[in-house]
């Protein structure tokens, strides 16, 4: 009898693990889409912050203030339920997109994380020595060449650690999509719990999946940081300096 109970346990855990693993593409897709969106938008915000026009700078500053000053959960509810209650959104051409909870979660995450990424990029931009820009100017480099050869490569290297932290945060934030009916890893875990009343083992399975995802991302970021570190030559002297 004990054996039968144990078998039932193993079957339940295997079924649950399978259901959770099947939801990984949803979590991963949401992360990748909003990471790309937020990075592009964040770059745009930094460009706007350094723009000559005061209203453009003001809009960028307001955007960052709004999205960094309120919880992502509230932003997700605002995009999903709040905007859907407005007639122009519901009758407008974008309703098929807004009707989809996954799109709404991605949109909210893109807007929110773009504000954090903009702050990271701005910090990196400020850390580039002014002398280098002046030297580039003195060499007669144009705006685009300056950006391509001097500013962007250094920004990338300087911003990477903090930018990587933001990406890890984003992986974790995808779990909030479950609050608006998205069946991601957390959503599936909650559904299993609501129907089986088993809490601890199901949550541990889900937590394990997230730990795997964040761990893999962290390892990837470490590798990228080493590659971009000018004091480390490729392969040979790895870990020698620092």
């Amino acid at each position: 009898m004990g054996g039968a109970a144990m078998n039932a346990d193993v079957t339940f855990l295997a079924d649950t693990a399978l259901a959770i693993v099947r939801a990984v593409p949803v979590t991963l897709g949401l992360f990748v889409a909003s990471a790309i969106g937020a990075s592009l938008l964040g770059g745009g915000l930094v460009a706007a912050l350094t723009a000559g026009l005061a209203p453009v700078r003001g809009i960028a500053r307001g955007w960052i203030f709004l999205f960094r000053g309120t919880p992502l959960l509230l932003q997700i509810f605002m995009v999903y339920y709040g905007l859907a209650a407005l007639g122009p959104v519901r009758q407008g051409p974008f309703w098929p997109a807004f009707r989809d909870p996954l799109f709404c979660a991605g949109l909210a995450m893109t807007c929110c994380c773009s504000a954090y990424i903009a702050e990271v990029l701005r910090g990196a931009l400020a850390a580039i020595p002014a002398g280098q820009i002046e030297a580039a100017l003195a060499c007669g480099m144009g705006r685009v060449t300056r950006l391509r050869l001097i500013v962007l490569p250094q920004m990338l290297r300087l911003a990477l650690p903090a930018y990587g932290n933001e990406l890890v945060m984003m992986v974790k934030s995808t779990s909030l999509a479950s609050t608006i009916t998205v069946l991601d890893v957390t959503g599936v875990a909650q559904q299993v719990i609501a129907h089986s009343y088993r809490t601890l083992d199901v949550f541990c399975l889900a937590a394990g999946v997230y730990l795997g995802l964040t761990g893999a991302l962290t390892a990837l970021l470490r590798w990228a940081e080493r590659r971009l570190d000018p004091t480390v030559s490729d392969g040979a002297g790895e870990g020698a300096s620092r």
Binding site: Y81, A84, A85, R90, R99, P101, T179, T181, Q191, A194
Partner: peptide
């Protein structure tokens, strides 16, 4: 079947046609 945590949220989605 789509699951909601409160009835208010479900009502909103019923009214907006989701």
């Amino acid at each position: 079947i789509r699951y909601y945590h409160t009835m208010g949220e479900r009502d909103l989605d019923l009214l907006n046609g989701r």
